[in-house]
Design a protein around this nucleic acid. Sequence first.
RNA 1: GGUCCGGUAGUGUAGUGGUUAACAUGCCAGUCUGUCACACUGGAGAUCGCGGGUUCAAGUCCCGUCCGGACCGCCA
Length: 462
Amino acid sequence: MIIANQTDALEDTRLKYRYLDLRRPVLQQTLKTRATLMQATREYLDGLDFIELETPILTKSTPEGARDYLVPSRIHPGRFFALPQSPQLFKQLFMIGGMERYYQIAKCFRDEDLRADRQPEFTQIDIEASFVDQAQVMTMTEGLVAHVFKQTIDVTIPLPFDVLTYDEAMRRYGSDKPDRRFGLELLDVSSVFASSDFEYLRGQSVSMLHLPNSTLTRKHIDALSEIAKTYGASGVSFMKYDTDFTSGIASKCSREELAAIASLAQPSANDLYLFVAGDLRVAQTALGQVRLHLGQELQLINDKEYDVCWVVDWPLFEPTDTGVTSAHHPFTSPKPQTMDALTKDAIAQAYDVVCNGYELGGGSIRIHQPALQAKVLELLGMSKERAKEQFGFFLEALEYGTPPHGGIALGVDRFVMLLTNTTNIRDVIAFPKTASAQDLMSQAPGDVSDAQLSELQISRKK
RNA sequence: GGUCCGGUAGUGUAGUGGUUAACAUGCCAGUCUGUCACACUGGAGAUCGCGGGUUCAAGUCCCGUCCGGACCGCCA
């Protein structure tokens, strides 16, 4: 096996002989950057009098969210520990326990399907503080992120970060983690077609992309349509402009509608207009993905640039088939305005920090009043009994005088990906797992003996 | 759970349904040698991921399955 810096070896060969792959200078450098990130994090947070505290790895299965990795208890047959999806409840308990400024570089575990930027075990910079509001957490985080960029790759990130609301991010970029390194922003043209004669657009949410001086062919547009369909849209419609709007859906639109489009996005020769219609979030997301694809294809992205921003004012809940679920987690506080008359449209005191189209981290101000917590759980449709069974210890703790508190968690792996300019999370983890959550080197997960299972009083199915 | 791309000597790849599966690199042997990415000659090395099927004939087409990768669902 060749230990060249650049390798064209197949992923499975590299992963099987990971210790050889690690000899490649590029991977060595990446792991050093990772170490520097951790060191810079401790340096910054220690300097702000945060205390590095540990939380258990063998813990209790959490009520919702991702699937847990379970660990059977030998001493209590039939009962299981769960590996933490995050230290969420424990860090809040630190606040109740009077450890007013906590941080931890924490391993988290989620038994869900993988992606290019997702592993079953990953690392978070987990932070929580008492007597803070959203603005204070954001300012502290900005300082941390800027410090890490400076210490690791000597890049200066301008402060403070831009702030977008969730609605704005979705409207302008069709994403809750917008890549703002290039323009090509979406425009909401729903109002133009509110009472259109064109049935396809009438009354729909319509999102539009204006491509000046475009050379895209019909074949290109069809490919973009396929992308949009992946995200649940019916497809991408288009019209062109030379001296007037032509082709595509132009003939289906009235003069007034075309004039309205022209006033929103000044046309000139060879311009292309793309449209996705449908449910608001579907139309935005689908065209947002088309935008990202075009950004890459048309090489509009400067990969030396780092754009960091906040996305705030997230919905507290999101609808499900049966009711609502937490958009963030059930301990997230609503904004004060929506607190008294809490409805399913409430806005959360939640914030995500986004860099170059990646969710670098997210956090929230937590609920510290037992009554409000009870109300949120009620809206989530969780019975008192179930809540008590799942995390009664936490609800009880809230009763003992809980300071207002909030925090954030930053993804270490994604952070290193950004710092080292890779799109593959396996490149930033020393011993990663494959897309099917296996370790090709150690062959984990492996079989265990009947004797081991018997000791745990576990039997195999079938 | 679904969609798509890939799996061929140790490694990385090529390979219109048709003779003995090709190339690079690595390995072995020899020749040469002021080498330093040596050069030259020769050699070994492939159940074409696995199992079925279609066909006179399958690396190639079809179905299933396993593995790697990307994506959708999922990931509070």
